[in-house]
């Protein structure tokens, strides 16, 4: 198959610039993915009308679907560019469309600013807190059963797919998002993280916390790491309710 791959790309020159579309013809290569396509366009940024244009801006890092940087909307569906194979995309529709995620501000072209995603993780204290540099030895042991539940949650790569697909994640609500809910569940399960569990539950039971979820369950469907987000959401719902009641009685 020597035919060109036809790619329609939504572009924007600056954060407050106008949005426009350009079409590129890229020579087909065996096993190529969308990051390859974008690299080829960068090497020769000429549109189908023969116009020499600026290379398309995009993000990428690991090239193996573990960093989340290259997340974008491909053929109308959010996913990673580096693991989106052209062969499979052409089975979905004859010409490929690339758009930036809609839930984050566009920096340029396909590059978005995911600060809100990371700020939610900060708000949720999705870490093990340490207050010094000395050797603490090995952490507390975990029961295998807990470990089996916690490990899948640790695979989150902060890509933002779940947020892009979530109807409740938007400018109208300050929702922390399913990724943060799941990280709270993870760090409240891991013994080393439990010392600040109540602070994380405050976030879950607070504004923009778990109650903003409307159970549309898109998050779990689109998560490329197959994280059981809806299970985390249900656990978080129960934990937050219990926490809110206990908090109220302790006043």
């Amino acid at each position: 198959m020597a035919q060109d791959v036809i790619v329609h790309i939504q572009r924007k020159d600056s954060p407050d610039g106008a949005t426009y579309r350009q079409t590129f013809h890229v020579p087909y290569e065996d096993g190529m993915n969308i990051t390859t396509v974008l690299q080829r366009i960068s090497a020769q940024p000429v549109t189908d009308e023969g116009e020499h244009t600026a290379p398309v801006a995009y993000d990428a890092c690991c090239l193996e679907e573990v960093c989340g940087a290259c997340t974008m909307v491909i053929n109308g569906h959010v996913r990673q560019a580096c693991s989106a194979l052209v062969d499979n995309l052409l089975k979905e529709q004859p010409e490929i469309t690339l758009e930036p995620m809609t839930k984050f501000p566009v920096v340029r072209d396909l590059l978005v600013d995911r600060s809100r995603l990371f700020n939610a993780l900060k708000r949720s204290k999705a870490w093990v807190s340490v207050d010094g540099y000395w050797d603490r030895g090995s952490g507390p042991l975990m029961a295998p059963r807990d470990q089996e539940e916690a490990y899948p949650l640790s695979r989150c790569m902060s890509c933002g797919c779940c947020l892009e697909a979530c109807p409740q994640y938007n400018d109208k609500e300050d929702f922390i998002g399913p990724h943060a809910v799941s990280q709270i569940v993870l760090y409240n399960t891991v013994p080393a993280g439990q010392s600040i569990a109540p602070e994380r539950l405050d976030v879950l039971a607070g504004p923009g916390g778990i109650a903003a979820c409307g159970n549309a369950q898109n998050c779990v469907k689109v998560c490329p790491k197959e994280i059981p987000l809806t299970t985390s959401i249900a656990k978080a719902g129960r934990a937050a309710t219990g926490h809110a009641i206990r908090r109220w009685f302790r006043r």
Binding site: G76, H77, A165, P167, Q168, Y169, N170, K172, E173, A212, G214, N215, A216, Q217, N218, K221, V222
Partner: peptide, 24 residues
Amino acid sequence: VIALSADMNAREYRYGPNIRYTLQ
């Protein structure tokens, strides 16, 4: 108020639970 806080997207993401969410 809750319904207005949603950005419904059942057209783009045609999953069963999302359609039920929109119908809700």
